[in-house]
Design a protein around this nucleic acid. Structure first.
Length: 274
DNA sequence: AGAGATACCTGGGAGC
DNA sequence: TGCTCCCAGGTATCTC
């Protein structure tokens, strides 16, 4: 379930193997994931080179030599691989982009929540218009306690839903929101508007610490996620509360509870989090 | 307007 | 064993 750390690692790995490569052929095996895939066939990708690969939130942006971009999102089961051409197509691989070095960029997605499309860029080095509505990057200086305090005033929605909102800050999904709130002792059910200024500082600090650590370890390979080269992320071993409903809290031993918040399961310790 | 619910999709696991 | 049901999850879109 790729969140920001996984997207960051995918972007870094793709940058190493795709930068400077030219697309020679496009194959599409399924009509749609989140959006139709067939436009890729007529997008005129053949002969275009990949100049730069970067990340915004959970999206990976590959800038093309004609000023457009390949926009990727991995949903919860998206996997990309860059491999030689002699490996048989896997069941849920939907798109192949053949490259000038004989390798193939392969996009797999079991649950079809992923996105792969070509779109325009307002300027070189920029980001597509549809990502413009996002809040500041979670690892940037703009994502700070003052910001979080300011935008959360008057908000009644639970703090967990709040920090998972892309318009507030993109890239923090269920795993990292759950772990961050446990790390700072804040209940996921607390209305965002009730956070103190001090708690906003701590929450920011903890979220960055966890995201950096997860990037370092290659992300969390809970179920579907694999890095570009096929290796698994190791952050899953460091999870303290996500997916541990019913078990004993590592800090106090109390039984971990679970609540449905914003339609998602949220594990929390009733003793450590208030 | 803001907040909450729902559809999208597939595979795995639980329960009968 | 095989069937049904539920769950996982990000995002867009719907309703209240």
């Amino acid at each position: 379930m790729p969140e920001l750390p996984e997207a960051e690692n995918i972007a870094r790995a793709l940058s190493r193997v795709l930068t400077g490569r030219t697309i020679t052929q496009v194959e599409v095996f399924s009509p749609a994931m989140r959006e139709p895939l067939t436009p890729l066939l007529t997008a005129g990708l053949e002969g275009k080179s990949l100049l730069d690969i970067r990340r915004r939130g959970r999206y990976v942006i590959a800038e093309l030599s004609d000023g457009r971009v390949l926009l990727m999102h991995f949903g919860m089961s998206g996997v990309v691989r860059v491999e030689g051409g002699n490996i048989a197509k896997r069941k849920h691989e939907h798109v192949f982009l053949h490259l000038d070095d004989g390798k193939i960029f392969r996009f797999e997605c079991t649950r079809r929540f992923s996105l792969l499309k070509v779109c325009a860029l307002p300027c070189a080095g920029g980001i597509p218009a549809e990502l413009d509505k996002f809040g500041p990057e979670p690892l940037s200086d703009e994502f700070n306690g003052e910001y979080l305090y300011r935008v959360s005033r008057g908000k009644s929605s639970p703090v967990k839903s709040f920090i998972m909102d892309n318009a507030i800050v993109p890239g923090i999904g269920n795993i990292y929101a759950t772990e961050t709130l446990f790390g700072v002792g804040i209940s996921p059910l607390r209305p965002a508007g009730k956070l103190t200024r001090k708690e906003c500082d701590l929450l920011i600090q903890e979220s960055k610490k966890i995201l950096h650590r997860a990037i370092e370890l290659g992300g969390s390979s809970i179920s579907d996620f694999l890095n570009v080269d096929g290796s698994e992320g190791k952050f899953a071993q460091e999870l303290k509360i996500y997916g541990k409903t019913g078990q004993a809290c590592v800090q106090c031993g109390a039984k971990i509870l679970s609540a449905r918040i914003g339609g998602r399961t949220s594990a929390y310790c009733p003793c450590c989090q208030h």
